[in-house]
Amino acid sequence: MSPPEKSIRVMDADYITRTLNRIAYEILEKNRTLKDLALVGIRSRGVPLARRLAEKLKEITGTVPPVGELDINLYRDDLSRIAYHPVLKTTEIPFDIDDKVVVLVDDVLFTGRTIRSALNALMDLGRPSWVQLGVLVDRGHRELPVRADYIGKNVATSKSQDVIVHLAELDKVDEVVIADTPEGVS
C-alpha cells in the first residue's frame, strides 16, 4: 500500500489515557458496581483497550473485571466478497458470559458491521444480561442501527478517509490518525 497522502493526528498518548480514564468512570457510573461485569475486546486493537480499561477500573475500585478476547472473522458478512479470508485468531473468553454485563470494546466505530458480527459471536457463546459498547473513536457513517454507550472521541470524517489507531502494545506508539486514502484505494 502506498503511504497516505495527508494525515492529521487527532489523539496523542496523553489524550488517549485521559479518555480511557473517563470511560472507566462512565462504566462505573452506568453500572454502579463491577459485580457481574466483564470486558470483551474485539481483536486486534479492542483487546489492549479492554485491558487498559480493566487496569483503570482496578485502580479505582480495587477489583479487576475479567477480560476476554473476541475474534469476529468467522461472523463477518463480507466473507464471500473479500479477496482472501483473514487470518483467524483465537477467541479467548475464559469465563462464563451468561447473565453477565458485557462491555464490548473496540477501537473505531464506523459502519457498525463489526459490532453486528461481534454481537452474533457473543450470542453463540452465551446469553449476557446486557451488552454495552465502548469505542475509542466514533467516526460516523453507520450502515446498521448500532450506537456506542461509551465514546472516547467523535471524529468527523469523510467515508473515503481512514481512521488509524495505533496502540503501544501492538504498534509501539499511542495515537489516532486520520489519513486521506490515495485515489483509487478504498
Binding site: 468467522l74 461472523y75 464471500s80 483467524l88 483465537t90 477467541t91 479467548e92 459471536a121
Partner: peptide
C-alpha cells in the same frame, strides 16, 4: 498458516453452540 488457523477453530468444538455462520450458502 493452516495450523495457526486451526487453533482458532478448536474452541468452537468445545463450546455450547458448536457452529459458526462462516460458510453459509
Amino acid at each position: 498458516l493452516i495450523l495457526d488457523t486451526a487453533e482458532g477453530f478448536v474452541q468452537i468444538s468445545a463450546r455450547e453452540i458448536k457452529k459458526v455462520p462462516t460458510l453459509r450458502g
